[in-house]
Design a protein around this nucleic acid. Structure first.
Lengths: 225, 225
DNA sequence: TAAAACCATGTAAAATCTGTGAAAACTTTT
DNA sequence: AAAAGTTTTCACAGATTTTACATGGTTTTA
């Protein structure tokens, strides 16, 4: 099992180190950013950050702003660190979708407990396996079965199919696919998608037809005729 | 961007004014009703009310009843105002599809925050689909159905039809259509529109007649005869 | 009512896009 | 370091869409 990534954002390196130490001990992988801008960049460059811990007070871009920017694209859980309890702006946080506040100073146990609670809560909602039209995608096992028959997919193919299934019925532009399945900073040829779609379709046999071409637009995964 | 309409229902005019003031400050458009009957009538007369704020205790028809009547036809978000927290009937509310409770007295900020949170939440889930005269345009799926029957449209045709439907009843000059459906830097033949209109009409069968020619001016989408 | 202005339609050319195969560039495994 | 596998690029053919244009019909205007 791969370790869960947490991004810690604080301008004080001592604080970052402190938080990091606690989390690393609890077997999380910790990334650090020392200001809001760096945090946002890092979040979108990395694709699999499971939780953010944000200091409210930071130069350049404060925690609220980071929260806003990230919430435009992601529902990743966010914990806010506040110096005093009156720095907590519950109202603003509510609007922005903050999951939890922790006031400094905090005990290591509290921090880890909250992090684990939130991850447990959110992971429950996340589906581990998707099923549609005889296609079963097991994200944990990284395996796909079609009518009970396991098929071999490369990583990209797997991710692409997952993305399609997660967005079944939704018309997806190539650009959108690129931004979601490929890394945010990938600037290659959009035709790459076509090639992967071709392979996916062929590996999926007759169920490959579920991946529909929308001319001049992109693709759409849909089960009905 | 047009302002979002909220209907506030309470028998006390002071309370209505209070709520209204807060919401207007946050740039909502506020309609008022002073009892349940009026609220229901108003809701169905107005077509585009985005949210209801209902007092539970009202003469004639209480908040629960209003909720029931409206829920038969609409999924519009509903916030209930309760005098005391024990007036909240969570169970009943759950059945009726109440989205949120706010107990009086409440702070203006909380009210506005909840309203905005709910609108954000529901707008996300809301399908981007337009419906008129048996024509359903699902922008997400990039699909058009006529009387439940899916029809194939090219991208331009799809966009053109969407534009027409979004501007139903409005006479649209060719220039305007060109500027909105085509890129603003398109300098081709305006006759191109005619061709697309022709195709659209034919693909839409008898409903093609909804696209009306306005002589010497352009086109108009309109459902009635 | 005739002329002028304008629209609908069919046809065909032009532009655009997709599917495919093959090869190049990378990664990972052996 | 070679082999095996994966991902990306590229180019071409075929398919589809978009556009232009000519013709004939319709509406307006004078």
């Amino acid at each position: 099992m791969e370790r869960v990534k947490i991004l810690v954002v604080d301008d004080e390196s001592r604080m970052r180190k402190l938080v990091k130490d606690f989390l690393v001990k609890s077997n999380f992988e910790v990334l650090e950013a020392e200001n809001g801008e760096e945090a946002v960049d890092m979040f979108f460059a990395q694709k699999d950050i499971a939780l953010l811990i944000l200091d409210v007070m930071m130069p350049k871009m404060d925690g609220w702003q980071v929260c806003r920017e990230i919430r435009q694209y992601s529902k990743v859980p966010i914990i806010m660190l506040t110096a005093k309890s009156d720095e907590r702006d519950e109202l603003l946080g509510f609007e922005l979708g903050v999951d939890e506040y922790i006031s400094k100073p905090f005990s290591p146990k509290i921090l880890v407990a909250r992090v684990e609670a939130i991850l447990r809560r959110t992971n429950q909602q996340e589906e581990v396996s998707l099923e549609i039209g005889g296609i079963v995608i097991d994200k944990t096992a990284h395996q796909v079965k079609i009518d009970g028959q396991s098929i071999d997919l490369s990583v990209k193919e797997f991710e692409l199919l997952s993305y399609f299934v997660e967005n079944k019925g939704v018309a997806l532009s190539r650009e959108k696919i690129l931004n979601n399945v490929w890394n945010y900073d990938y600037f290659g040829d959009a035709r790459t998608i076509d090639t992967h779609v071709k392979k996916l379709r062929s590996k999926m046999g007759e169920k490959g037809e579920y991946i529909k071409t929308i001319w001049g637009m992109g693709y759409k995964f849909e089960v009905q005729a």
